[in-house]
Design a binder for these strands. Structure first.
Lengths: 188, 188
DNA sequence: GGCAACATTTTACAAATGTTAAAAAATCAT
DNA sequence: ATGATTTTTTAACATTTGTAAAATGTTGCC
């Protein structure tokens, strides 16, 4: 089962040796739709790779719940503060469909980072890819109107548009659900 | 001169050996206010650490120039796409004051990443810190109004408020200069 | 000092988005 | 299937933010 991961671009850069070292610590888990696998305000001990399914990260505000990230198969999934600062996180991560994930304990992963140069660089690449994607979203907010953001999201993530509730997509795009509905309506 | 860097938190995690290996490739450079050190649409060959001064990263749009990052001393500074994807960047980086920087060629840095485990993990930490900071800004846009973002920015970055043109701060905060002016006016 | 260039604020108006509430549509569970 | 629940859309109105242009303030330079 875990061997499937080997085909994900994320892992293809690893040598066979490093892949075996890493995968030795990985365990396949499956959860039903609706499961929350990362809780805010907790130090979460696992780093996950989504093998199949859809996930979202969100923050519970006073009057609102803001979704700020979606993951599809191949995505990495972890509590930022737990992973980066070993402190409680701010985000919840919920599975929007039945999902299969591979996970590794952060303590094991951190040991590998201190032992294996390839894996350390693999971890660096993960952070860098997330970084450039996040910065791009921040910049898109400045340059593109809400309608353009929606249409591009729909074009680039057809699976998500089909299967994710619009209220979640609205907050992901940085608008209210009413505004998103207007954008969609303007198309007909 | 370069020894000063050793005190920056960014470098304090490195062992003496790794520090010497890294600093061997680093060169101190100084530029006057107004110098652009990273150009959009170019593959930029250097990774910089800002030793003193203030820098901003911006994108030239059709009608607007959007500043999306500020750096003060200790900040790392590079073309994201050059560094991460070895392809031309989207951002310009300009020095807003006379500045001293230390730089290392990306080719040298990448070699070190492949040779030295500590330096590879140091590079991982850099990306992770930038990542968490960028995500926090994206989330702040959703939860905080423009006025709150301004007041918090002013509180956390007193140097920048003092020395950076408000038009740059406005786009950094995600509002027009007129709106920023209204926010500031509302305080008196 | 005084002019020129640039930065900031102000004003009036326009456009986009938010808020609240209700209706319509879709989905879920028994 | 059908009633209950949730999601999405629609409507009316309020608010925020944007745009353009003029007024004011600031900075640097000769």
């Amino acid at each position: 089962m875990i061997e499937q991961l080997r085909d994900i671009p994320l892992f293809s850069a690893l040598s066979n040796d490093s892949w075996h070292e890493l995968s030795h610590y990985m365990v396949l888990v499956q959860y039903p739709k609706g499961t929350t696998i990362i809780y805010a305000d907790k130090v979460e001990p696992y780093f996950y790779i989504l093998q199949s399914g859809i996930a979202r990260a969100y923050i519970d505000g006073e009057n609102q719940q803001i979704t700020f990230w979606f993951g599809e198969s191949g995505a990495v999934l972890f509590s930022f503060n737990s992973y980066i600062n070993n402190s409680p996180g701010y985000e919840n991560i919920e599975l929007l469909t039945n999902s299969a994930l591979t996970r590794i304990k952060l303590t094991d992963l951190f040991l590998l980072y201190q032992q294996n140069l390839e894996i350390a660089n693999w971890g660096r690449k993960i952070a860098e890819q997330e970084l450039i994607a996040t910065e791009r979203r921040l910049i898109d907010r400045a340059f593109k109107g809400a309608a353009a953001r929606y249409h591009e999201f729909a074009a680039q993530s057809p699976e998500l548009i089909k299967r994710v509730a619009l209220k979640h997509i609205a907050s992901y795009l940085g608008v209210t659900q009413v505004t998103l509905s207007r954008i969609r309506g303007a198309y007909k």
